[in-house]
Computed example of a mutant assay.
Amino acid sequence: MAQIAPVPQPIGVHSQFIAQKTETLVLKEHVLSLSGDSFSVKLADGTPVLQVEGKVMSISGRKTVRDMQGNHLFDICKEHFHIHATFAIKNPQDQKIMEVKSKFQLLGSKAVATFTSSNGKAEQLQMKGNWFDTSADITDEAQGGIVVARIDRKLLSGKDIFFGQQTYALQVAPGVDMALMVAMCICMDEKNNEGK
């Protein structure tokens, strides 16, 4: 994957997860885990970054995201009673810090994430994927459609797909919150799993 240019001003909520350079994260789903769909999130060099724990028997499909010290960062919850799939990212106090809502699109898939960055700026990022959702670009339309992150599943081996596990390569631009981009990637995975 080609390098993604740095963003003009930081985008995100978690200052400790703002990428200092272009970072590639690998999200590996653990389908057969006893806790439900869980993910390990590592840098391309294998350094663990985040742990994502799925909750069994959760109507919202709640997933808890923690840093490697075990600190609770946020939960990803599917919201019901919406026409289009909608996910809420909630902080440990159960307050919504980001919403990811899918939009109808004839070819491919599209979702919009809305949140307020820690600098107080209202953000709206678009995630557009191909028909089979093996890749997606996350763009900031307010800044001229610049790419802030890129999700790609094609780079990775077929054995993951054979065993029903998803593995994603997530490339994040310098200046962007890696934890929120992981949340968007997991929302895309959840949306894709609905059709199965």
Results as ranks from 00 to 15, higher is better:
K159N: 07
A173W: 03
H82G: 06
L125R: 01
V26W: 03
I18E: 03
L43Y: 13
A2D: 14
A179N: 10
L34G: 05
L125F: 04
Q20G: 14
G129E: 09
G120L: 11
E23G: 01
A5C: 08
S35P: 03
K96T: 08
E190R: 12
S40E: 12
C187F: 01
F115L: 02
Q20T: 13
L180I: 01
A122Q: 13
C187G: 05
Q143N: 08
M178D: 01
A19G: 09
T167I: 12
K103H: 15
G54W: 01
D45K: 08
E194V: 02
S33E: 10
V49K: 15
G158Y: 08
N192E: 14
D137P: 00
K101Y: 01
L73S: 05
Q93G: 11
D133P: 01
C187L: 04
K159M: 13
D140S: 09
C185F: 02
M1P: 06
L156V: 10
S60F: 10
H30M: 13
V176F: 09
F162E: 03
N130D: 09
S102G: 06
E23R: 11
D37R: 08
S38L: 06
V13P: 01
D75P: 01
V148K: 01
K128T: 13
V182M: 09
T24A: 13
S157E: 14
Q105D: 14
K78F: 07
T134N: 15
E141C: 04
Q126T: 12
G158N: 12
Y168A: 00
E79F: 00
V41F: 05
V56T: 03
S15T: 09
A113G: 14
H72T: 11
S118M: 12
K191A: 04
V100R: 02
M181K: 03
E99V: 08
D45Q: 10
E141V: 13
A179P: 02
G120H: 12
I76A: 07
I161K: 13
S109P: 13
M68K: 11
M1K: 03
I4S: 00
I59Y: 00
D133F: 03
G108A: 07
W131D: 09
R150W: 04
Q3A: 15
G61F: 05
Y168F: 11
H82I: 04
K121S: 06
N130K: 00
S109V: 10
S33G: 10
V147C: 04
H72K: 13
G144P: 04
I161E: 05
A113K: 07
R153P: 06
K28M: 06
L32M: 12
N71G: 10
D140P: 07
Q124G: 06
M127A: 13
I83M: 15
F74D: 09
M178W: 04
C77E: 15
K110T: 14
Q126N: 11
W131P: 00
T22P: 14
E99G: 04
F162C: 01
I186L: 12
R62W: 04
M1H: 04
G54E: 02
K196E: 06
I59P: 00
E53G: 08
A85Y: 12
K110V: 09
D94W: 03
Q16C: 02
F74V: 06
E23A: 11
A19E: 12
P10K: 15
S135I: 01
K78V: 05
